[in-house]
Design a protein around this nucleic acid. Sequence first.
DNA 1: CGCCAACTTGATGGCTGTCAAGTCAGGTGG
DNA 2: CCACCTGACTTGACAGCCATCAAGTTGGCG
Lengths: 247, 247
Amino acid sequence: MPLSPVVKEISIAVIKTACSNCNLRELCLPFGLSEEEMARLDELINVRKRIKRGEHLYRAGQPFESIYAIRSGFFKTDVLLEDGRDQVTGFQMAGELLGLDGISNEHHSCNAVALEDSEVCHIPFSRLENLSREIQTLQHHFHKVMSREIVRDHGVMMLLGTMRAEERLAAFLLNLSQRFTARGFSHAEFNLRMTREEIGSYLGLKLETVSRAFSRFQEEGLIAVQQKHIRILNIPGLKQIMSHHNH
Amino acid sequence: MPLSPVVKEISIAVIKTACSNCNLRELCLPFGLSEEEMARLDELINVRKRIKRGEHLYRAGQPFESIYAIRSGFFKTDVLLEDGRDQVTGFQMAGELLGLDGISNEHHSCNAVALEDSEVCHIPFSRLENLSREIQTLQHHFHKVMSREIVRDHGVMMLLGTMRAEERLAAFLLNLSQRFTARGFSHAEFNLRMTREEIGSYLGLKLETVSRAFSRFQEEGLIAVQQKHIRILNIPGLKQIMSHHNH
DNA sequence: CGCCAACTTGATGGCTGTCAAGTCAGGTGG
DNA sequence: CCACCTGACTTGACAGCCATCAAGTTGGCG
């Protein structure tokens, strides 16, 4: 497990918050809870932090105490190998949880970095465990969230293990589109928060290959790219590329 | 989520069992429990099933009801894409849990196949949730196990995203060796339960590439290969290959 | 003994990495 | 306001790793 160097203090503003008023509660941890149960969750999740673009929410090696729910913004997580190689393991957006990897060792096993100015809800993990021993719905939903993370990771393994560059990028764009849609944003038009290099790292490709694939998609009329701005023009076309698997 | 066809009934022998007598309890779910707590877990995990080599423990698409602890034997899990591609997502051995991916959807998202005659303990999941609402140690340990699975998957993503063929195979062998050691077997000599094709699928390589890498390791005196029998001769050498990352 | 699956080894080709040069956009300072 | 600078991106040329195709070998089992 790579240990990170001493961490400089990051500027985090702290605000009161409440799940019961949060418009993400259908996506996030409170899903399925009654009014009264949600009030109890509110007692626990009462701190919100602002993280500025580029700042770390946590770093690999730091003691694990809390998980975080993204209230707004965009994050990446990445892992570092001893020999200097690193890889982005995921991009997280509003309503998703960060820090689940830290439960296993009592230490975080990856870095979480804000890709834009963001706000997260701070959830002390032992208190969450306490509460989920009392609220079955919460317990079960939390287990589902962890399990979903495992399933997601299997999907990424599939992508990395069996797909070619353009298939990977198509899958990536479709995934982003679907997640933006679930949050009420346009499914067809969005700004990428990450660089080509970060996309490449996530997809197991070099940034040049990502760039070429974007250009190729544009030539074929599947998308319109202008730097970080993406418009998806042909979703079925992308799906076909994703599962072409041609010989 | 790929749905599997109707599943033929598999021959499963059912036996009484008990965690308190199990020599894997330090690796498995009962870890850290008191005598009395373990007795309560025993009430829940009272069925053991035999799975013969080649049989499925469960299939993608089947309703999820239970997780399984491997009592003895060896499994693989794999996922299938709509277009026919598939990939092995993991190899599991004694003391490890199977089925965690099914919690998220109420349906299994992968297939679990025995690679040798095996025995598993059947753990009804809702009863496990009930009990872990009462036993904090059990709850926390279960969370750790799920989290460990996430961390493991990140490691595989790293492997698939950044390593070359020989690095992947070295990492794979070292991982197997370490897990055999943890179970009291020789760290240096073991039989592979899986084919070259299954290793390749897991590592994102073709079977020919796996075979060539084995031959290369043998030429270099790092291992001795005879079909499925492996002797590891030079662990530091393998570690060096794994993290060579040379230019 | 013969068959078959699993494996090994060789030859070739293609995808993607690498190296390099150039373009673009945004931010800073004069 | 504009020039400049820098990081991000694009595009091209080439090379290398691994996939593909093919042939042969091994070992287990009926």
